[in-house]
């Protein structure tokens, strides 16, 4: 069996217990049902790209995309858990490269993210007007993969760099908040959006993931969405390289 598959199996089997995986999936489902439906009682419909949408239909792709942030922070959490239980140093002394460990961690998160997204789509079907095609499903998968590679790598680089779990948690929570609210998860980025927020949204890779998935859900994919894929290929390559660099320099325990 391939090294990366063996390491991925280990992460799914041991680092992620059933409670963690359930939480990973149920929290966004809660977001979708509670926030989507509650906000939907205030904002009945609004115009998005020339189409009238219910708020829950608008928010559903955003919450699916937001799943990659959960996956990303889990990638960092797995790294910290492995540091804490000594497994990181042990694995590094086994016949695996550090890059293989990094890839397996990201692959595990892609599986969890995609599994969560599928469940959310199934949960959302009764509440939203979904027009997704088979090609749309493929695009959703591509956006989720690229998004997880980008944000997973950011969190892995963070996990490999900071010196305590507490610092990691604080930074990842702030990042989660900032990245979510400066993207198009909860509201569209339009000409009426304040300038600073619009700029932040443009610099935020999550915006491209959300918009791409939203287009796939509404079957309104255009060349712009394919352009977004190229942007995300570049961000994921850059952040994977940064994560790889930090892994090479990761501090093991301090014993002489």
């Amino acid at each position: 069996m391939n090294s990366i598959i063996r390491l991925t199996y280990r992460i799914i089997r041991s680092a992620l217990d059933i409670n963690t995986i359930s939480f990973l999936i149920l929290l966004p489902v809660g977001y979708l049902l509670i926030m989507g439906l509650m906000m939907g009682s205030i904002i009945h419909t609004f115009n998005y790209g020339g189409t009238n949408l219910s708020y829950v239909t608008f928010i559903a792709p955003g919450v699916v995309a937001d799943q990659i942030l959960m996956g990303g922070s889990m990638a960092g959490w797995v790294l910290w858990s492995d540091k804490r239980t000594g497994m990181l140093e042990q694995i590094f002394s086994m016949p695996f490269s550090r890059f293989e460990y990094q890839l397996s961690n990201l692959l595990a998160m892609i599986l969890v993210t995609f599994g969560g997204a599928l469940i959310m789509i199934l949960v959302a079907i009764p509440f939203i007007s979904l027009k997704i095609t088979l090609f749309g499903f493929l695009l959703v998968f591509i956006f989720l993969v690229l998004g997880t590679l980008t944000f997973g790598s950011i969190m892995l680089a963070l996990g490999a760099t900071v010196r305590s779990n507490q610092v990691f948690n604080v930074i990842s929570n702030v990042m989660f908040f900032v990245v979510t609210f400066t993207s198009s998860v909860f509201y569209p980025i339009t000409s009426q959006t304040p300038g600073a927020l619009a700029t932040a949204a443009k610099l935020n890779p999550l915006t491209y993931v959300v918009d791409g998935i939203r287009s796939a859900f509404l079957n309104t994919t255009t060349a712009v969405d394919i352009y977004y894929i190229f942007i995300l290929i570049i961000t994921s390559a850059v952040f994977m390289e940064i994560a790889s660099y930090t892994y090479k320099r990761i501090k093991l325990s301090a014993t002489v």
Partner: peptide, 14 residues
């Protein structure tokens, strides 16, 4: 090689 490091290591939830 086989390596038993000084630092304890285990899969805590298995």
């Amino acid at each position: 090689i086989g390596v038993i490091l000084q630092q304890p290591s285990y899969e805590w939830n298995l």
